[in-house]
Amino acid sequence: MSRFTLAANAEMLFVDMPFEQRVRRLHQAGFDVEIWDWSNKDLPGLAATGARFGSMTGYLRGTLVDPDGATELLRTAEESLVAAEVIDCPRLNVHGTGLDPAGTPVVPHLVVTGADWLAAARTLERLAALGERYGRIFTLENLNTAVDHPGVPFGTAEETLALVTAVDSPHLRLNLDLYHAQIGEGNLVELCGRALAYIGEIQVADVPGRCEPGTGEIHYPRVAAALAEIGYEGVIAMEAFAATDPELALTRFRDAFTMSAA
């Protein structure tokens, strides 16, 4: 039995099915469900599936740094909070800047200054206050810039942890993505221990390929054991493609994060 709450991303699994059917399939398999852009979804229809939703994208546009971008991020974050109430989603995910459909920044931000850090922290403070008002949590996700998201500011786990620590609000936590961290930084077990107090959830996929645990270089059963040793009992979400069969991918994921009774 897993001591973690296991979730899976409906955007990346059973991709030949209509979206609502994907959600039902994950729910029937016993997983919480995560989604990305809520604005193109039938939220009442998703709510009617009976699935428990763990995370969704928490903004539609905007950035953390420039004033106009921050205003837009906060405006669409509030829209996202209203949407989250429809499916009762507790966590809303944000990034260092707005991303296009390919995952690259709408406006690349290659050089981050001290003033940028201060502006980002102020925007995140306001975001956390919005989360508190609605009783929900925003999570700031680390992203790798080497493979998937070139030009994203505040992309590393070190940077997201620094920002979340600076804001220090229970309504702003880390979405610690170990796939991205492995590409950008490595040393995952130590990273999890250092970030533990600020983790809102953990996302996983294997490297290379971004497929399920067991298909790449990360030994996720060891990561699972380390998380258990440090007392983590939160959400582990598979944000990964299926290497071959989605059912097999879910089985491999569950096996990697299921701890023995001993």
Rank of each mutant, 00 (worst) to 15 (best):
90 P>E: 10
167 V>M: 07
98 G>E: 10
142 N>A: 04
65 V>W: 05
76 T>R: 05
161 L>E: 15
131 G>Q: 02
121 A>F: 09
123 T>P: 05
111 V>C: 12
145 T>G: 14
88 D>W: 05
94 V>A: 09
173 R>K: 13
156 T>L: 02
92 L>H: 01
106 V>D: 09
82 V>F: 13
129 A>I: 03
145 T>C: 15
162 A>N: 01
86 V>A: 06
74 L>Y: 06
177 D>W: 12
117 W>V: 04
107 V>F: 04
153 P>R: 02
63 T>V: 02
90 P>D: 14
76 T>A: 14
147 V>I: 08
59 Y>M: 15
131 G>T: 08
93 N>D: 02
140 L>T: 03
179 Y>D: 08
151 G>C: 12
156 T>Y: 00
82 V>E: 13
114 G>Y: 07
89 C>I: 14
80 S>V: 12
90 P>M: 09
153 P>S: 13
180 H>Q: 03
123 T>D: 09
98 G>L: 03
161 L>F: 15
101 P>Y: 04
146 A>W: 00
79 E>P: 10
100 D>P: 01
156 T>K: 06
61 R>F: 04
138 F>E: 00
88 D>S: 14
59 Y>H: 14
65 V>R: 11
73 L>H: 08
170 P>H: 14
178 L>Q: 03
165 T>Q: 13
106 V>M: 08
177 D>N: 14
64 L>D: 12
90 P>V: 10
105 P>H: 02
70 A>Q: 00
110 L>K: 14
174 L>Q: 01
109 H>R: 07
81 L>K: 01
146 A>K: 08
112 V>H: 09
101 P>F: 02
73 L>R: 03
108 P>I: 06
82 V>K: 09
181 A>C: 11
123 T>W: 00
60 L>M: 15
173 R>G: 07
125 E>I: 09
115 A>K: 14
123 T>M: 08
108 P>D: 06
125 E>F: 06
150 P>R: 10
84 A>C: 10
152 V>L: 05
164 V>G: 09
61 R>S: 07
177 D>Q: 11
74 L>V: 04
86 V>I: 15
183 I>Y: 05
61 R>I: 06
160 T>W: 01
127 L>D: 02
147 V>F: 04
182 Q>P: 02
138 F>Y: 10
152 V>R: 01
116 D>N: 12
59 Y>V: 04
143 L>M: 12
126 R>Y: 03
179 Y>V: 03
80 S>R: 10
83 A>N: 11
99 L>I: 10
128 A>F: 07
88 D>H: 11
101 P>D: 08
97 T>D: 03
182 Q>C: 06
111 V>S: 12
142 N>K: 02
70 A>V: 00
118 L>C: 15
163 L>K: 00
144 N>I: 05
78 E>P: 02
97 T>C: 13
81 L>M: 05
129 A>F: 01
102 A>V: 12
134 Y>P: 12
67 P>M: 05
161 L>D: 15
84 A>E: 09
118 L>S: 15
119 A>T: 11
85 E>Q: 15
100 D>I: 01
136 R>T: 11
152 V>K: 00
124 L>N: 04
158 E>K: 05
61 R>E: 06
120 A>G: 03
80 S>E: 05
177 D>S: 11
72 E>Y: 01
106 V>S: 07
181 A>R: 04
127 L>R: 00
98 G>S: 10
115 A>R: 14
114 G>R: 13
94 V>C: 08
80 S>T: 14
105 P>Q: 01
